[in-house]
Structures are given as structure tokens and as C-alpha cells.
């Protein structure tokens, strides 16, 4: 038995656009093993963002089955999906999605606060990640006071501090210059070497090359 973090079978998703039904995902079969660094590569409109939302438990599938770390997501209610997002998934977004009114530390510890930890414990638990990502001297800064690369490192720290089963990155270098992008990808490689499972969604072949495995998604269908 393989130790799969993600296991998807025949996943379909469609949206209604006025009177028309738009089939975005057309029977996706996709799996990711624990500790794997996988890139999902596809052009704009291919359905990769929809796939990411379903993997990230932020959207529901119409049909098929999806299991994340052994939890049958397609049978889980929204209330429990909140907990799964908090415990199992670390999100890294293209636009960082940091809360502008909170400082770096407040942003990083937010997932731990969400699960009921008190602030001091959460800050202590995140200290190692903060040091590893070189953010120790930036903790009191607001996101607006940081460079793009630094912001993305804060987002990665936020994703890592909750010790999730899966790091889910959506175009993590999309808003960065080449140097900052490369730094982030080096960091991903390091995290992968440390045993983290990473799924990275990108439209850029050069970015996808950093992953251990690349799958292509075109017009809602996946090609391994």
C-alpha cells in the first residue's frame, strides 16, 4: 500500500455561466505520495486553479472522489473542512494573501490561533520556522514594509508553522522577480528535502522543472 497524501478519482467540476454549463474538470485522476514535490503545469483556463481549490478544500467537486491524508473530502461537511484546511494544508498564494493590518508575526501565527492556541505558545512554536526563513528581524513589520520575496517567505512561514500534511502553492513565483522567484523555489526544494509534501501549480515550464514530478493539465484533463 502506497502512502498517498492526495488520491483523486474521476473528479469533475462544472460552473454555470448564464445558461451555459462550463465543464472545467473532466474526470481528473491524480495522486500525490507523501514527501513528493509535484508541479501541476497548465496554461491559463486549463482548470488548474479549480483543481487547486478542490485540493485545498475550498471548493467542492461535482462527482468523483477525493481523499486527503486518508480523509474522504467529498463526504465531509463545510464545518469539518475548516479544520482540515487548518490542520492538513498550508496555502501559499501567488499574491501572498497576507493580512495588511497585522505584522509579520501576527500573520505567521494566525493558523495556530485559529486552532485555539494562545499567542505566546503559537509564537514559540513558530520561532524555528521564522529563523529558518530569515524573518527574525522583520517580525514587527507590516507586509507593506517588505519586499515581494520577503512577503512570500512570510506566506511560506505561515503555511509551515501549522505543520501541515501538504503545502499547496498556487503560482508562488508569479508575482516575484526572477531572483526572488529562484530563492523561493530553492526554499521549496529545501522543504521537500526536509520531507514536506508540496503541490505547486504553475503555468511556467521553468518553474515546474524545480519539482520532482510534473503533471500537465489541459482543458480540464490531466496528462501524467
Amino acid at each position: 500500500m502506497t502512502d498517498q497524501i492526495i488520491s483523486m478519482h474521476n473528479v469533475c467540476k462544472s460552473y454555470k455561466m448564464g445558461t451555459e454549463k462550463l465543464n472545467v474538470l473532466k474526470g481528473i485522476d491524480f495522486s500525490v505520495d507523501r514527501g513528493e514535490f509535484t508541479a501541476i503545469l497548465g496554461p491559463s483556463g486549463s482548470g488548474k486553479s479549480t483543481l487547486m481549490n478542490i485540493i485545498g478544500c475550498m471548493d467542492t467537486l461535482d462527482s468523483g472522489s477525493y481523499s486527503l491524508n486518508g480523509i474522504q473530502i467529498d463526504e465531509t461537511k463545510e464545518r469539518d473542512l475548516v479544520k482540515i484546511r487548518n490542520h492538513e494544508i498550508g496555502f501559499i498564494f501567488q499574491n501572498y494573501h497576507l493580512i495588511p493590518t497585522y505584522n509579520v508575526m501576527q500573520n505567521i501565527i494566525m493558523p495556530l490561533l485559529m486552532r485555539g492556541e494562545d499567542r505566546k505558545t503559537a509564537e514559540r512554536d513558530c520561532r524555528e520556522v521564522v529563523d529558518m526563513l530569515g524573518l527574525s528581524d522583520r517580525l514587527k513589520h507590516k507586509p507593506s514594509e517588505l519586499s515581494g520575496g520577503q512577503r512570500q517567505r512570510v506566506a511560506i512561514a505561515r503555511a509551515l508553522c501549522s505543520k501541515p500534511s501538504l503545502l499547496l502553492a498556487d503560482e508562488p513565483t508569479g508575482a516575484l522577480d526572477q531572483q526572488s522567484g529562484t530563492e523561493v523555489l530553492r526554499l521549496f526544494t529545501k522543504l521537500h528535502e526536509m520531507g514536506n509534501t508540496i503541490v505547486m501549480i504553475t503555468h511556467d515550464m521553468n518553474v515546474a522543472k524545480w519539482a520532482e514530478r510534473t503533471v500537465n493539465i489541459v482543458d480540464g484533463q490531466m496528462y501524467q
Partner: peptide, 8 residues
Amino acid sequence: ILKAIGGS
């Protein structure tokens, strides 16, 4: 963002 990272 809060909902994505586990805000109920």
C-alpha cells in the same frame, strides 16, 4: 484568507 487558513 482567514477562512482559507482555518477561520470558522
